[in-house]
Computed example of a mutant assay.
Amino acid sequence: MEVDSQQQMTKNQRKIKQYSSLFRVMQRQNVVDPILLWYTVSPVRKEKLEQWCKEYGVSCEVLCKHDF
């Protein structure tokens, strides 16, 4: 789980890339399919995080404070 409130988006993108490598290792070891859960404060940031996760092949769910 990641909580994003003030992190620079370039750092978030790097994290997603790292999660992509980790998730591939976990999938090869037949670990349950991992899902990255994000919580963020802005719908714009939510869209960008979802876009990067899709681009890097990371299963995710991105929640925004406006979703609650």
Rank of each mutant, 00 (worst) to 15 (best):
M1K: 10
V3Q: 09
V3W: 15
S5N: 14
Q6E: 08
Q8K: 14
Q8Y: 15
M9P: 03
M9Q: 06
K11N: 00
K11F: 02
N12F: 03
Q13D: 01
R14T: 00
R14P: 01
K15Q: 03
I16G: 03
I16W: 01
I16N: 01
K17W: 02
K17C: 01
K17F: 02
Q18Y: 09
Q18L: 05
Y19R: 01
Y19F: 09
L22T: 13
L22K: 15
F23W: 08
F23R: 01
R24N: 06
V25E: 13
M26N: 09
M26S: 08
R28A: 09
R28D: 11
R28E: 14
Q29S: 11
N30S: 15
V31F: 14
V31T: 11
V32T: 09
V32G: 04
D33Q: 13
P34T: 06
P34F: 06
I35E: 00
I35N: 00
I35T: 03
L36W: 01
L36H: 00
L37P: 04
W38K: 02
W38F: 15
Y39Q: 04
Y39L: 05
T40K: 01
T40E: 07
T40S: 06
T40C: 14
V41K: 08
V41E: 11
S42W: 13
S42I: 09
P43G: 12
P43R: 13
V44K: 14
V44R: 15
V44A: 11
R45L: 07
R45P: 02
K46P: 05
K46D: 06
K48A: 14
K48H: 14
L49M: 08
E50M: 15
E50N: 13
E50T: 13
Q51A: 11
W52F: 00
W52K: 00
C53I: 03
C53A: 10
C53K: 02
C53F: 05
K54L: 11
K54F: 13
Y56D: 04
Y56L: 02
S59A: 09
S59Q: 10
C60S: 10
C60Y: 06
E61Y: 11
V62W: 04
L63E: 05
L63D: 05
C64F: 11
K65Y: 08
K65D: 10
D67N: 12
D67C: 08
F68T: 12
F68R: 12
